[in-house]
Design a protein around this nucleic acid. Structure first.
Lengths: 166, 166
DNA sequence: AAACGAAACGTTATTCCATATCAAGACCTC
DNA sequence: GAGGTCTTGATATGGAATAACGTTTCGTTT
């Protein structure tokens, strides 16, 4: 468990880990971990930030791996369906899962200054509104939890403005 | 407190209430509750569903109140800044605030079948991830909480499929 | 009342996000 | 090796959001 998801870590290792685990998962489930899917996940793991679909796409295109939006959206769809990638609704962007294997009801902390995104697990699905849902008779299937604010680093350097510091 | 936000209610009354309260708030804070802003809020209150910006825009256009995207986006920006309207990130859509005056850290329950959206208040900001944020040194400013699932009505009629039934 | 500044609006155009659709190729199963 | 499924390629389109520019409106100051 990462005590502080904004801290540095052994990045090369976490990339290799994630790719290996994805390969293993796909092999075990008879899923095709195709070059495009592999590369998209690798790009997201390497960048280690939330990326727009078109950012990923242009990188793919530069490598001759497909140049049209559907290519990357299909890959992202596959990767999110199987939990390797998460979509950040607030940013209309995607990020590699930082906690592979963990029970998946992730929450995100998004820095509005540097756009860093940290993933953190939540206690249980429906965090905080399980009671309201039950009362209303609503059946929760998936929950998006995204907090926006300032990461530790940006609190020091830009505690005040919202400007174009990026 | 609405026991069940998916239930019916005195709709005409809640529209009038919300508009009155918005007018009062703007008057008190010297804000301009212009025709476009008034009408956008009224449209959202009347429809009582999440609406895309362009849905709102086409209705505005039909009434001669402005026909270009920035018109509606500016109005929506004003209305969300002051808490009269909420954005549903998951849908890229907007909905009138159902709990005016309540301390605002709203959560939403979104029915994936009929697209009804219910707003419910949360205990406190940062629901569920306050601890994680503090540990990480992250300063939460705003939190998006959106649960997707099945509303009470659709649980009866379409309890199973996620398919193209829509 | 005339001048000024701030806020809101109108308009054009563009960028970015996302998906529908159809055709062709790869892969697996039988 | 025939058929089905999955994946990809390519074209087109729809919807979300903003940039950039100019004009109007309104309240304040003088």
């Amino acid at each position: 468990m990462t005590a502080n998801p904004f801290r540095d870590h052994d990045h090369a290792h976490c990339i290799a880990d994630a790719l290996t685990s994805a390969e293993a998962y796909c092999a075990a489930h008879k899923l095709q971990f195709t070059p495009v899917r592999h590369r998209v996940l690798e790009i997201l793991l390497t960048k280690h930030r939330a990326m727009g679909a078109y950012d990923i796409l242009s990188q793919l295109a530069a490598e001759g791996l497909g140049s049209q939006p559907p290519v990357v959206y299909r890959a992202l769809d596959f990767l999110t369906r199987h939990g390797f990638v998460h979509k950040i609704e607030r940013l209309n962007a995607f990020i590699a899962c930082a906690l592979p294997g963990a029970a998946h009801t992730p929450a995100f902390m998004i820095c509005r200054a540097c756009h860093a995104v940290a993933e953190t697990p939540t206690d249980r699905p429906g965090v905080g509104l399980g009671a309201a849902a039950q009362e209303a008779g609503f059946e929760i299937e998936e929950t998006v939890i995204e907090a926006e604010g300032l990461c530790p680093t940006c609190r020091k350097t830009a505690p005040r403005t919202e400007g174009p510091a990026a």
